[in-house]
Nucleic acid binder design. Structure first.
Length: 226
DNA sequence: GAATAGATTGTCT
DNA sequence: GACAATCTATTCT
């Protein structure tokens, strides 16, 4: 589907790639979630560069949103990053074994964040393969299972809880950051895996690039039910 | 393709 | 002690 990132040599791309400014994140969370589609996630460390194009996000908007970890403005050690300044990472462990990567948005103290749910691999695919094969031996370089879910992409990009609170902005670019990419088309659906959130589970706060094979679940599947 | 079970642990009541 | 912004394998159709 994407024709992005095929013509520039890695050296040239690295020199040109800049982190998105904090002003990108310091906006209403729904706008940021939508605008993240098509942007590129970059992880550079230990001489390794891994990049992918974001194709699925979700917005979480406390304190009213019952699906957000900041629902009711209950501040805890875990959700502290969500209350911090925009442009930082909020990372947590879920189901005892999976990592989720979020972008803190809006104004400090609001408790808003964007979950990165899926992306399309661009660079460092052999490295993604190595990391993902630690738990899924059958995965191949062109398999959607490489990065088509929030836990999967964190494993593929070697993102861990140690990256919580990391600043994603600055010059030169930090270890983890977002950079510009071609604007993506967008479709909205309800969010995934938040059946406990009452009527908030119906909010169309999930953003996907329609038709992209790395989206975690198809809209048809998502919208089935009462 | 869809539905289901089981895994596994930090966090909060 | 219950639960969770999930993933994988298995068992169906």
């Amino acid at each position: 589907m994407s024709s992005f990132g095929v013509s520039i040599s890695p050296g040239v791309a690295r020199a040109r790639t800049r982190a998105l400014p904090r002003s990108f994140y310091a906006r209403p969370v729904l706008q940021v979630a939508r605008d993240c589609l098509g942007k590129v996630l970059n992880v550079r460390r230990q001489g390794i560069e891994i990049t992918g194009r974001i194709v699925e996000t979700e917005a979480y908007r406390g304190p009213q949103d019952l699906a957000a970890h900041t629902a009711g403005n209950v501040r805890t050690a875990r959700n502290e990053a969500m209350y911090g300044p925009a442009g930082h990472a909020y990372i947590f462990l879920i189901y005892g074994m999976h990592i989720h990567f979020n972008l803190v948005t809006g104004q400090e103290g609001q408790g808003h964040a964007v979950l990165i749910r899926a992306l399309e691999p661009l660079q460092g695919i052999d490295r993604m393969l190595r990391y993902r094969r630690r738990t899924l031996r059958s995965v191949t370089s062109d398999s959607p299972a490489l990065t088509n879910g929030p836990g999967k992409l964190c494993q593929a990009f070697d993102i861990s809880r140690e990256d919580n609170l990391r600043d994603l902005c600055g010059q030169p670019a930090p270890e983890i950051f977002l950079s510009e990419g071609p604007r993506a088309r967008c479709r909205r659906t309800p969010r995934i895996g938040i059946d406990y959130a009452g009527s908030w589970r119906l909010k169309p706060w999930r953003f996907i690039e329609p038709g992209n094979r790395y989206v975690s679940r198809s809209p048809r599947t998502t919208l089935t039910g009462p």
